[in-house]
Amino acid sequence: MSSIERSERRTAFAFVAPALLWTLAFFLVPFGAMVLLSLAHLEGREIVQAYDLGNYIKIFTDPSLLKGIFVSLEITMTVTVISVLLAWPLAWIIATQVPARYQRLAIMLAVLPFWTSYVVRSYAWALVLGQNGVLMQWLIGIGLLDAPIQIMATRAATIIGFVHFFVMLLTLTIYANLIQLSPNYARAAADLGASGWQTLRLVILPLTLPGIMTGAFLTFVLCIGDYITPQILGGNNELSMPQLIMLQLGRRGDFPMASALSVVLMALVTLAYAATARWLKMDRV
């Protein structure tokens, strides 16, 4: 290695070092501190380090905690599937049916509510779905319902709020994927005798798997870790993992248990990553 190369490398490393140090000090070290804390216990008001797996054993044996894992997984899976099913046709229609010069506008409109604050968006859904809300009044007005039905403070409300957000996200990732496809794929399929539907199902759909999987993974990560939507819309009838974590922190002050639950949450995300990794093209989105 020449001395010029060596000094180039030293300069380059000096450029990277501040960001690395920041990530180390405020991401890796805190994460380590949290893992250590998850091995401790709350005794009375004191946190006592025990270096054992007591909290984890409790998570998987205490029904109220174990249920949180299933609630979170069920909500997240439902939301991911519904969002993909709603977003794919939207992205496809915008990419293929809307004239090219209106596409950018259509996409910007499709994600416009992104620019409301996240907390406010959940609150707005609470207004829509409430007992006296717009939706119930409308359904009663057109004669579909005699009396309001309860949607707020149920899992359905949480799912509606989440689907609204993630349809926007998935439309972006799938649209980005669709417009990169050469029109020759569809032409070749048609030349070989495929019908429009066959082309869509057997050619276009498989080619959009990277966009679907990238969006689905992002949906999974953001959905399973979100506290706001289930808290505002779902209420306290069944608690998701983030709600359980906040409950440990707040009312109970059980920091070690909150940490252990977070480590489990993190493990679930890692599993989802492993399951989708071969399709992920994060750098393209």
């Binding site: 949290m34 990560v221 977070s262 949450l265």
Partner: peptide
Amino acid sequence: LPGSVVMRGLLIAPMTVSYLIIALGLLSL
């Protein structure tokens, strides 16, 4: 640089972690 893949991975890593976990980690620290 030697280890540039690892460095890149480390710099990107916080993107895949829930904000709640990042917050809790910082709170513990």
